[in-house]
Design a protein around this nucleic acid. Sequence first.
DNA 1: CGTTCCATTTACGTAAACGTAAATCTACTT
DNA 2: AAGTAGATTTACGTTTACGTAAATGGAACG
Lengths: 133, 133
Amino acid sequence: MSTDTMTIREMCDAFDVTPRTLRFYEAKELLFPIRKGQKRLFTRRDRARLKLILRGKRFAFSLEEIRQLLNLYEPGNGQATQLARTLELAGGHLRDMEDRRRELDDAIGELRAQMNLVTEMLNDVSASSRAAE
Amino acid sequence: MSTDTMTIREMCDAFDVTPRTLRFYEAKELLFPIRKGQKRLFTRRDRARLKLILRGKRFAFSLEEIRQLLNLYEPGNGQATQLARTLELAGGHLRDMEDRRRELDDAIGELRAQMNLVTEMLNDVSASSRAAE
DNA sequence: CGTTCCATTTACGTAAACGTAAATCTACTT
DNA sequence: AAGTAGATTTACGTTTACGTAAATGGAACG
C-alpha cells in the first residue's frame, strides 16, 4: 500500500493552499502533522481536518471557531458529561448551519428572480430595437 | 406616512452594527445615505443593500466582492450589452451559491451522522455504568 | 447662554490570516 | 566536495474590516 502520508508540497497541490498556510494551521493547532526528521508528514486525519477547515472558511467561520468545531468530529472517548457537552455544541452548530441553509435558499431565490427581471429587460430592449428598424 | 429614512442610530439598532461600520461601508461605496445638513439619512435602498451586505459576509464574501454583487440587484437601465454582462455575472454568482448549498447540505449530513455516533457512544457509556452497579 | 447629547471627521490602533524575505538545514546530484 | 533544490525557522510586512480616541459641530433643553 502507498505511503498514507503526504508531504507539504503534495498537500499544497491537493488542496490548493500554500506551505505557509499549512504551517500556520499547525501553529494554531488545527493540524498535527508528524515529523520525519525535520520535515512534516500529513496524515489522513490531517487531510480530513484540512477539508473541514477550508469548508468552514467558505462559511465565514474564524479559525478559532473551526478549531473548536473540529473536536466535534473527534470526540475522543471521553466522559459521559464530556460527550454530552459535545452533543450540545454540535446541536448548536447544526442549528446554525440550518439557519444558513435557509438564508442561502432565500438568496438563491432572490437572485433567480432578479435574473428573470433582467432577462425581461433585455428582451424588451431588443424587441424595441427591432421595432425601430 | 412615516419618514422612510433612518438615522444612523436607528440603523445600528435595526441591523446590530456600529456607526463606524455604516460610515465604513459608505466610504467603500456600498451605501449611499443622503445628507440632511451634516447628518446621514439612510434610505430604503440603503437598508436593502445593508441586508445583502450582511448576508454576503456570513458567506465569506469580501466587501469588494459584495460591492460588485450589489450591482446585480440594481441593473440601472443600461445598454443591452451591459444587461447581458450583468446576467452573465449573476449566472456565475448563482452557480457559486448553488455549489455552496450542496457543500452546506453535505456538512449538515456529516454533522448529523457524527451526532448519531456520539449519541450511541453516550448510550453505551451509561449502559455499562448501569451494568457495573 | 451654558450644558448635554449625538453625529461627524480625522487619524492612529488592532485582530485575523496569512505573505514574504533571509538564513539555516538536509538531501541529493554532479 | 560543491552545487542546488526543497523544507524549515524566524521575523517583519500586508490586507481586510473595522475599533477607538480626540477634536469639532450643531441642536435641543433648562
